[in-house]
Simulated assay, not measured.
Amino acid sequence: MELRQLHYFVKVARKQHVTQAAQELHVAQSAVSRQIRLLEEELGVHLFVQKGRNLHLTSVGRLFLDRIEGILTDLERAVIEIHEFSDPEAGEIRIGFPHSVVLNLLPSVVASFKKDHPNVKFRLRQGTYNSLIRDITKGEIDLAFISPFPESHEQVVGEILLTEELFAILPADHILADYNSIRLEQLKDESFVVFSEEYSLRTIVMSACQKAGFIPKIEFEGEETDTVRGLVAAGMGVSLLPEMALTEISMLQPAKVRVTEPRVTRTVGLIRRRGDQLPLVAEVFRRFLIEYFQAKRGGSK
Protein backbone atom coordinates (compact mmCIF):
# COMPACT_ATOMS: atom_id res chain seq x y z
CA MET A 1 0.00 0.00 0.00
CA GLU A 2 1.46 3.32 -1.08
CA LEU A 3 0.79 6.81 0.20
CA ARG A 4 -0.02 7.87 -3.35
CA GLN A 5 -2.81 5.29 -3.51
CA LEU A 6 -4.35 6.67 -0.33
CA HIS A 7 -4.30 10.22 -1.66
CA TYR A 8 -5.93 9.04 -4.91
CA PHE A 9 -8.56 7.09 -2.99
CA VAL A 10 -9.52 10.08 -0.81
CA LYS A 11 -9.72 12.38 -3.84
CA VAL A 12 -11.99 9.99 -5.77
CA ALA A 13 -14.16 9.46 -2.69
CA ARG A 14 -14.63 13.22 -2.33
CA LYS A 15 -15.26 13.92 -6.02
CA GLN A 16 -17.19 10.68 -6.69
CA HIS A 17 -15.67 10.78 -10.15
CA VAL A 18 -12.35 9.47 -11.46
CA THR A 19 -11.99 12.07 -14.24
CA GLN A 20 -12.56 15.03 -11.89
CA ALA A 21 -10.21 13.52 -9.31
CA ALA A 22 -7.52 13.03 -11.97
CA GLN A 23 -7.85 16.65 -13.09
CA GLU A 24 -7.33 17.97 -9.57
CA LEU A 25 -4.43 15.59 -9.00
CA HIS A 26 -2.88 16.59 -12.37
CA VAL A 27 -2.41 12.97 -13.42
CA ALA A 28 -3.92 10.75 -16.12
CA GLN A 29 -7.34 9.22 -15.48
CA SER A 30 -5.93 5.79 -16.25
CA ALA A 31 -3.28 6.24 -13.52
CA VAL A 32 -5.93 7.02 -10.90
CA SER A 33 -8.10 4.06 -11.99
CA ARG A 34 -5.12 1.72 -11.88
CA GLN A 35 -4.05 2.78 -8.36
CA ILE A 36 -7.59 2.41 -7.04
CA ARG A 37 -7.80 -1.07 -8.58
CA LEU A 38 -4.44 -2.08 -7.04
CA LEU A 39 -5.59 -0.77 -3.65
CA GLU A 40 -8.81 -2.78 -3.81
CA GLU A 41 -6.88 -5.90 -4.84
CA GLU A 42 -4.51 -5.49 -1.90
CA LEU A 43 -7.36 -5.00 0.55
CA GLY A 44 -9.48 -7.73 -1.00
CA VAL A 45 -12.63 -5.58 -1.03
CA HIS A 46 -14.52 -3.22 -3.34
CA LEU A 47 -14.20 0.37 -2.11
CA PHE A 48 -16.48 1.89 -4.77
CA VAL A 49 -19.60 0.93 -6.68
CA GLN A 50 -20.57 2.53 -10.02
CA LYS A 51 -23.88 4.42 -10.04
CA GLY A 52 -24.46 6.14 -13.33
CA ARG A 53 -21.46 8.32 -14.05
CA ASN A 54 -20.42 8.55 -10.43
CA LEU A 55 -18.55 6.31 -8.05
CA HIS A 56 -20.07 5.82 -4.61
CA LEU A 57 -18.33 4.36 -1.60
CA THR A 58 -19.36 0.95 -0.41
CA SER A 59 -19.97 0.49 3.32
CA VAL A 60 -16.43 -0.79 3.80
CA GLY A 61 -15.20 2.08 1.61
CA ARG A 62 -16.81 4.61 3.97
CA LEU A 63 -15.16 2.90 6.94
CA PHE A 64 -11.79 2.98 5.17
CA LEU A 65 -12.23 6.65 4.25
CA ASP A 66 -12.90 7.63 7.88
CA ARG A 67 -9.68 5.96 8.99
CA ILE A 68 -7.51 7.15 6.11
CA GLU A 69 -8.59 10.80 6.37
CA GLY A 70 -7.54 10.80 10.03
CA ILE A 71 -4.19 9.21 9.17
CA LEU A 72 -3.47 11.69 6.37
CA THR A 73 -4.46 14.62 8.59
CA ASP A 74 -2.07 13.41 11.30
CA LEU A 75 0.66 12.96 8.68
CA GLU A 76 0.19 16.50 7.35
CA ARG A 77 0.24 17.86 10.88
CA ALA A 78 3.43 15.93 11.63
CA VAL A 79 5.15 17.41 8.56
CA ILE A 80 4.11 20.91 9.63
CA GLU A 81 5.36 20.30 13.17
CA ILE A 82 8.71 19.05 11.86
CA HIS A 83 9.14 22.25 9.87
CA GLU A 84 8.11 24.36 12.86
CA PHE A 85 10.45 22.38 15.11
CA SER A 86 13.39 23.59 13.04
CA ASP A 87 12.22 27.19 12.57
CA PRO A 88 12.90 29.62 15.44
CA GLU A 89 10.71 32.29 13.86
CA ALA A 90 7.57 30.22 13.53
CA GLY A 91 5.68 27.51 15.30
CA GLU A 92 4.08 27.36 18.70
CA ILE A 93 5.44 27.30 22.24
CA ARG A 94 3.38 25.28 24.72
CA ILE A 95 4.03 26.67 28.18
CA GLY A 96 2.52 26.02 31.58
CA PHE A 97 2.40 28.26 34.63
CA PRO A 98 0.96 28.53 38.16
CA HIS A 99 -1.59 31.26 38.80
CA SER A 100 0.77 33.22 41.03
CA VAL A 101 3.17 33.71 38.10
CA VAL A 102 0.71 34.81 35.43
CA LEU A 103 -0.29 38.13 36.99
CA ASN A 104 2.68 40.18 35.81
CA LEU A 105 5.61 37.95 34.97
CA LEU A 106 4.25 35.88 32.08
CA PRO A 107 2.56 38.68 30.10
CA SER A 108 5.65 40.88 30.32
CA VAL A 109 8.13 38.23 29.15
CA VAL A 110 5.89 37.04 26.32
CA ALA A 111 5.37 40.61 25.12
CA SER A 112 9.12 41.26 25.25
CA PHE A 113 9.90 38.06 23.32
CA LYS A 114 7.33 38.77 20.62
CA LYS A 115 8.93 42.11 19.80
CA ASP A 116 11.70 40.19 18.03
CA HIS A 117 9.65 37.06 17.20
CA PRO A 118 6.22 38.35 16.16
CA ASN A 119 5.15 35.19 14.30
CA VAL A 120 5.61 32.85 17.24
CA LYS A 121 2.38 31.61 18.84
CA PHE A 122 1.92 30.65 22.49
CA ARG A 123 -0.38 28.00 23.88
CA LEU A 124 -0.79 28.59 27.62
CA ARG A 125 -1.88 26.11 30.29
CA GLN A 126 -2.42 27.00 33.94
CA GLY A 127 -1.79 24.36 36.58
CA THR A 128 -0.66 23.44 40.06
CA TYR A 129 2.85 22.27 40.97
CA ASN A 130 2.08 18.58 40.46
CA SER A 131 -0.05 19.03 37.34
CA LEU A 132 2.64 21.11 35.64
CA ILE A 133 5.27 18.43 36.25
CA ARG A 134 2.83 15.81 34.97
CA ASP A 135 2.13 17.82 31.80
CA ILE A 136 5.86 18.23 31.16
CA THR A 137 6.64 14.54 31.62
CA LYS A 138 3.72 13.51 29.37
CA GLY A 139 4.95 15.87 26.64
CA GLU A 140 1.75 17.95 26.66
CA ILE A 141 3.71 21.19 27.18
CA ASP A 142 7.28 22.14 26.25
CA LEU A 143 8.18 24.39 29.19
CA ALA A 144 6.66 25.37 32.51
CA PHE A 145 7.22 28.09 35.04
CA ILE A 146 7.12 26.43 38.42
CA SER A 147 7.47 27.34 42.09
CA PRO A 148 9.26 26.17 44.08
CA PHE A 149 11.88 24.94 41.61
CA PRO A 150 12.40 21.15 41.91
CA GLU A 151 16.12 20.94 42.68
CA SER A 152 16.30 17.20 41.96
CA HIS A 153 13.75 15.33 39.87
CA GLU A 154 14.08 12.17 37.79
CA GLN A 155 11.91 13.37 34.91
CA VAL A 156 12.35 17.14 34.66
CA VAL A 157 15.30 19.50 34.54
CA GLY A 158 15.62 23.25 34.34
CA GLU A 159 16.90 26.51 35.78
CA ILE A 160 16.01 28.83 38.64
CA LEU A 161 14.94 32.16 37.14
CA LEU A 162 14.46 34.19 40.30
CA THR A 163 14.12 34.03 44.07
CA GLU A 164 11.20 36.06 45.36
CA GLU A 165 10.38 37.35 48.83
CA LEU A 166 7.03 36.62 50.47
CA PHE A 167 5.40 39.40 52.51
CA ALA A 168 2.85 39.27 55.28
CA ILE A 169 -0.47 40.71 54.17
CA LEU A 170 -2.82 42.08 56.82
CA PRO A 171 -6.16 43.90 56.94
CA ALA A 172 -5.54 47.64 56.58
CA ASP A 173 -6.77 48.29 60.15
CA HIS A 174 -4.61 45.57 61.72
CA ILE A 175 -2.45 46.66 64.66
CA LEU A 176 0.70 45.64 62.76
CA ALA A 177 -0.33 47.10 59.40
CA ASP A 178 1.86 50.22 59.70
CA TYR A 179 5.00 48.35 60.76
CA ASN A 180 7.99 48.30 58.39
CA SER A 181 8.72 44.69 59.32
CA ILE A 182 7.53 42.02 61.72
CA ARG A 183 8.57 38.63 63.04
CA LEU A 184 6.34 35.87 61.76
CA GLU A 185 5.67 34.64 65.30
CA GLN A 186 3.77 37.89 65.89
CA LEU A 187 0.99 36.36 63.78
CA LYS A 188 0.75 33.09 65.69
CA ASP A 189 -2.63 33.94 67.23
CA GLU A 190 -4.15 35.16 63.95
CA SER A 191 -6.50 33.33 61.61
CA PHE A 192 -4.80 32.54 58.29
CA VAL A 193 -6.09 32.60 54.74
CA VAL A 194 -4.09 30.07 52.73
CA PHE A 195 -4.14 28.27 49.39
CA SER A 196 -5.70 24.83 48.96
CA GLU A 197 -3.52 21.81 49.63
CA GLU A 198 -2.53 21.20 46.00
CA TYR A 199 -0.82 24.60 45.75
CA SER A 200 2.86 24.95 46.60
CA LEU A 201 2.42 28.37 48.22
CA ARG A 202 0.45 26.68 51.00
CA THR A 203 3.44 24.41 51.74
CA ILE A 204 5.77 27.41 51.83
CA VAL A 205 3.51 29.29 54.26
CA MET A 206 3.01 26.27 56.53
CA SER A 207 6.74 25.54 56.63
CA ALA A 208 7.58 29.16 57.44
CA CYS A 209 5.08 29.21 60.33
CA GLN A 210 6.44 25.96 61.72
CA LYS A 211 9.95 27.41 61.52
CA ALA A 212 8.66 30.38 63.50
CA GLY A 213 7.39 28.00 66.19
CA PHE A 214 3.66 27.64 65.54
CA ILE A 215 1.07 25.91 63.37
CA PRO A 216 -1.23 28.46 61.74
CA LYS A 217 -4.95 28.38 62.42
CA ILE A 218 -6.50 28.14 58.95
CA GLU A 219 -9.77 30.02 58.64
CA PHE A 220 -10.24 30.18 54.85
CA GLU A 221 -8.74 28.54 51.77
CA GLY A 222 -8.49 29.88 48.23
CA GLU A 223 -7.19 28.85 44.83
CA GLU A 224 -6.10 32.22 43.43
CA THR A 225 -3.96 35.02 44.78
CA ASP A 226 -6.77 37.52 44.15
CA THR A 227 -9.07 35.47 46.40
CA VAL A 228 -6.51 35.23 49.22
CA ARG A 229 -5.66 38.91 48.96
CA GLY A 230 -9.33 39.94 48.87
CA LEU A 231 -10.25 37.85 51.92
CA VAL A 232 -7.38 39.34 53.91
CA ALA A 233 -8.31 42.88 52.86
CA ALA A 234 -11.88 42.16 53.98
CA GLY A 235 -10.63 41.31 57.47
CA MET A 236 -11.00 37.54 57.28
CA GLY A 237 -7.43 36.79 58.39
CA VAL A 238 -3.79 37.23 57.46
CA SER A 239 -1.54 35.49 54.97
CA LEU A 240 1.79 35.47 53.13
CA LEU A 241 2.01 36.20 49.42
CA PRO A 242 4.90 36.61 46.95
CA GLU A 243 5.82 40.14 45.97
CA MET A 244 4.70 39.78 42.34
CA ALA A 245 1.18 38.93 43.53
CA LEU A 246 0.96 42.24 45.38
CA THR A 247 1.82 44.71 42.64
CA GLU A 248 -1.71 45.01 41.29
CA ILE A 249 -3.85 47.66 42.96
CA SER A 250 -7.46 46.71 43.67
CA MET A 251 -10.40 48.10 45.60
CA LEU A 252 -9.77 45.65 48.44
CA GLN A 253 -6.10 46.24 49.22
CA PRO A 254 -4.39 44.59 52.22
CA ALA A 255 -1.41 46.06 54.04
CA LYS A 256 1.97 44.65 52.98
CA VAL A 257 4.61 44.12 55.67
CA ARG A 258 8.08 42.58 55.35
CA VAL A 259 8.79 39.45 57.40
CA THR A 260 12.31 39.35 58.84
CA GLU A 261 12.28 36.33 61.16
CA PRO A 262 12.33 34.02 59.32
CA ARG A 263 12.78 35.63 55.91
CA VAL A 264 10.36 33.77 53.64
CA THR A 265 11.22 33.25 49.96
CA ARG A 266 10.27 31.06 47.05
CA THR A 267 12.17 30.06 43.92
CA VAL A 268 10.56 30.42 40.50
CA GLY A 269 12.08 28.20 37.85
CA LEU A 270 11.64 26.97 34.31
CA ILE A 271 11.43 23.23 33.68
CA ARG A 272 11.45 20.91 30.65
CA ARG A 273 11.39 17.16 30.23
CA ARG A 274 14.73 15.54 31.08
CA GLY A 275 16.53 14.06 28.07
CA ASP A 276 14.24 15.69 25.48
CA GLN A 277 15.25 18.04 22.69
CA LEU A 278 12.99 21.07 22.68
CA PRO A 279 11.51 22.41 19.45
CA LEU A 280 13.90 25.09 18.24
CA VAL A 281 11.40 27.90 18.85
CA ALA A 282 10.92 26.71 22.46
CA GLU A 283 14.69 26.48 22.95
CA VAL A 284 15.08 30.06 21.68
CA PHE A 285 12.43 31.16 24.20
CA ARG A 286 14.14 29.24 27.02
CA ARG A 287 17.46 30.99 26.33
CA PHE A 288 15.65 34.32 26.10
CA LEU A 289 14.12 33.76 29.54
CA ILE A 290 17.48 32.92 31.12
CA GLU A 291 19.06 36.08 29.68
CA TYR A 292 15.99 38.15 30.57
CA PHE A 293 16.12 37.23 34.25
CA GLN A 294 19.89 37.44 34.42
CA ALA A 295 19.61 41.02 33.19
CA LYS A 296 16.89 41.80 35.74
CA ARG A 297 19.04 40.42 38.58
CA GLY A 298 21.98 42.46 37.35
CA GLY A 299 19.87 45.60 37.15
CA SER A 300 18.56 45.17 40.68
CA LYS A 301 22.02 45.14 42.25
Rank of each mutant, 00 (worst) to 15 (best):
78 A>D: 09
129 Y>M: 01
275 G>Q: 04
188 K>D: 06
53 R>Y: 14
6 L>Q: 14
181 S>W: 14
161 L>M: 08
130 N>E: 03
138 K>P: 05
98 P>H: 05
200 S>G: 07
44 G>T: 06
87 D>N: 10
118 P>G: 00
136 I>E: 00
155 Q>F: 14
240 L>A: 02
17 H>T: 14
227 T>N: 13
10 V>A: 11
114 K>Y: 02
114 K>R: 06
166 L>K: 10
129 Y>P: 01
161 L>I: 12
162 L>N: 09
1 M>R: 15
50 Q>N: 08
123 R>Y: 04
136 I>P: 01
26 H>L: 14
206 M>Y: 11
177 A>Y: 08
33 S>E: 11
127 G>N: 02
263 R>E: 05
82 I>W: 13
140 E>V: 12
213 G>A: 11
94 R>S: 00
297 R>I: 08
275 G>F: 06
84 E>S: 10
253 Q>A: 02
126 Q>N: 04
61 G>S: 01
280 L>M: 01
204 I>T: 13
233 A>F: 12
74 D>Y: 13
259 V>Y: 01
294 Q>E: 02
286 R>W: 07
209 C>H: 08
149 F>V: 09
3 L>F: 15
201 L>R: 09
203 T>A: 13
130 N>C: 06
257 V>Q: 00
300 S>W: 09
263 R>W: 07
95 I>H: 03
12 V>L: 11
233 A>H: 10
47 L>C: 03
194 V>R: 06
195 F>Q: 07
112 S>C: 05
235 G>M: 06
33 S>D: 09
220 F>N: 08
50 Q>E: 07
280 L>F: 04
56 H>N: 10
200 S>M: 09
140 E>F: 12
80 I>T: 15
65 L>F: 05
113 F>P: 00
269 G>T: 03
90 A>Y: 13
182 I>H: 08
20 Q>E: 15
116 D>L: 10
199 Y>E: 09
108 S>D: 02
5 Q>L: 15
131 S>L: 05
73 T>M: 13
93 I>D: 00
163 T>H: 11
287 R>E: 03
44 G>I: 11
203 T>L: 12
65 L>M: 04
126 Q>K: 09
59 S>C: 09
201 L>K: 09
251 M>E: 12
259 V>K: 02
167 F>P: 07
145 F>P: 04
13 A>V: 13
77 R>W: 13
245 A>Q: 08
112 S>M: 07
47 L>P: 01
173 D>V: 14
218 I>D: 02
262 P>L: 00
69 E>S: 07
237 G>R: 03
266 R>A: 06
67 R>S: 12
149 F>R: 03
123 R>L: 04
52 G>P: 04
127 G>E: 00
70 G>T: 13
54 N>C: 10
44 G>A: 03
232 V>Q: 02
57 L>R: 05
21 A>W: 14
159 E>K: 13
188 K>L: 09
34 R>P: 11
114 K>I: 07
272 R>W: 02
144 A>R: 01
207 S>F: 11
124 L>W: 00
50 Q>W: 10
259 V>G: 01
242 P>M: 04
34 R>W: 13
291 E>Q: 05
202 R>F: 11
228 V>M: 09
